[in-house]
Nucleic acid binder design. Structure first.
Length: 421
RNA sequence: GUGGGUAUAGCUCAGUUGGUUAGAGCGCCAGGUUGUGGCCCUGGAGGCCGUGGGUUCGAUUCCCACUACUCACCCCA
């Protein structure tokens, strides 16, 4: 063939798209119950949005963005995450002027990162995400987490682990950074090359390093949680209290840092151990400084992103069955040109009546048409040949019972409507 | 960006210690009744054996390079 789908991209084929639609339906439903409305933002944005929003020391910005110049020499970037575009839209369209908080979700939103593909990691993937602006109360942190967990629950997914942490605000982080740096500096010789660089750019990242030597050192490093200021500490306690009230199990994981610069206070990940090394199905947190950073009035915010592909991997690995919608209720089988015309008219009438109807488009024999009707799962077959046409009748065959009855053509559509109802 | 594995039909995979026309199962199409699906039987279509080079009388098989896929690191959803 001429070319293949680009590296790290995947087609969602007709044979599996119903799974996406099913999952999306549950997401829409859960969001509606929690009071979130859908927002759709462009697939590409001005590059500077992500430089400021995601943070220019992050791996995402430094080496993973699909950035190009358009014909007017504007620097454009395919979105590498969902939040920045929503924040831009929040500011640009003046949503702060409407009733607060502002609660929004996006569905199956394509996200692009130039990565090396592996299990659960693609160059184009899709995220379901929600964002909420305007509230600094810990109750919204708990609600956001609950939206994600409710989606998992309603999909029948069990065994995921919720990890939470607080990385504090700007104020408490400076104190913590000092303590962390002092500790790391003492143990510098045991750190990997990358981590020594991270000490200069973003010391928090060292906590995330998976190198054995580094993680040993990190295990005894000062913990952010112990350095939270009064307000942040109170906020974190408020979150824990609400999770407990909602009977949501969680684990406090002081090593969760997240790779995007905008997070403050609450961060969380929901992790699966069933889908390979890339087990984070959902990740998110609070970003109280982001709206202001992008030129809006100071406004707190919080949200999460959930990977659709990873979610479907979890569903598959757990063996969760998603109901596959039937392709066809009635197949209209005809013999000869005259009957084919009549049959085509009946097929259209059935469709107009809301029935999934099919007829022959291959010039096939009756046997082949029956075979095809069986393959596409038709519950009934209407048979019209010369004999039936002469009598203005059709035979209706029930494919599961293998029973046939003759019906007058002018009563056919009504009868089938009744049978379906 | 770094490392491991793999590459034969639409799919899952045999195979050739280097030798003529490369196989199976499933799937697809047709026939077995000029009017009846699932089961069964028969037949058919469909492969530059990933690409390029090397060794050889001869390479799908051996060697090298490249590419793609895949898994892991890194990072993240």
């Amino acid at each position: 063939m001429l070319t293949k789908a680009p590296k790290g991209t995947k087609d969602i084929l007709p044979a599996e798209s119903y799974k996406w639609q099913y999952v999306e339906g549950i997401m829409r439903d859960v969001c509606a119950r929690f009071g979130y409305r859908e927002i759709r933002t462009p697939v590409f944005e001005h590059t500077e949005l992500f430089l400021r929003g995601v943070g220019d020391t992050t791996d995402i910005v430094q080496k993973e963005m699909y950035t190009f110049e358009d014909k007017a020499k504007r620097s454009i970037t395919l979105k590498p995450e969902g939040t920045a575009g929503v924040v831009r839209s929040f500011i640009e369209s003046g949503m702060a002027g409407a009733a607060q908080p502002t609660k929004m979700y996006y569905l199956a939103c394509p996200v692009f990162r130039y990565e090396k593909p592996q299990a659960g990691r693609l160059r184009e993937h899709h995220q379901f995400g929600i964002e909420c602006f305007g509230s600094q109360e810990p109750s919204i942190d708990a609600e956001i987490i609950s939206v994600a967990l409710t989606v998992f629950k309603e999909l029948g997914i069990k065994g995921l682990e919720l990890n939470i942490n607080s990385i504090g605000c700007k104020e408490c982080r400076t104190g913590y950074n000092k303590a962390l740096l002092a500790y790391l500096d003492k143990n510098k010789s045991g750190l990997c090359k990358d981590c020594r660089q991270r000490m200069k750019t973003n010391p928090l990242r060292v906590l995330d390093c998976k190198q054995d030597s580094c993680s040993k050192i990190v295990a005894d490093a000062p913990k952010m949680i112990d350095y939270l200021c009064g307000e942040c500490s109170e906020h974190f306690e408020g979150l824990k209290g609400r999770l407990a009230a909602a009977e949501i199990d969680y684990k406090i994981n002081p090593l969760i840092v997240r790779g995007l610069d905008y997070y403050t206070k609450t961060v969380f990940e929901i992790i699966s151990t069933d889908i390979g090394a890339q087990g984070t199905v959902c990740g998110g947190g609070r970003y109280d400084g982001l709206v202001e950073e992008l030129g809006g009035k100071p406004t707190p915010g919080i949200g999460f992103g959930m990977g659709m592909e990873r979610l479907l991997l979890v569903i598959e690995s757990l063996g969760i069955e998603i109901p596959e919608p039937s392709l066809c209720d009635v197949y209209v089988c005809t013999l000869g040109e005259k009957a084919a015309k009549t049959g085509f008219g009946i097929t259209e009438e059935l469709r107009a009546a809301g029935i999934k109807a099919e007829c022959d488009h291959m010039g096939r024999s009756m046997k082949a048409q029956m075979k095809y009707a069986g393959k596409i799962g038709a519950a009934k077959v209407v048979i019209i040949g010369e004999d039936e046409l002469d009598k203005n009748e059709a035979v209706v065959r029930d494919m599961t019972q293998s029973e046939e009855t003759s019906v007058a053509l002018d009563r056919l559509v009504d009868l089938i409507k009744k049978l379906k109802a």
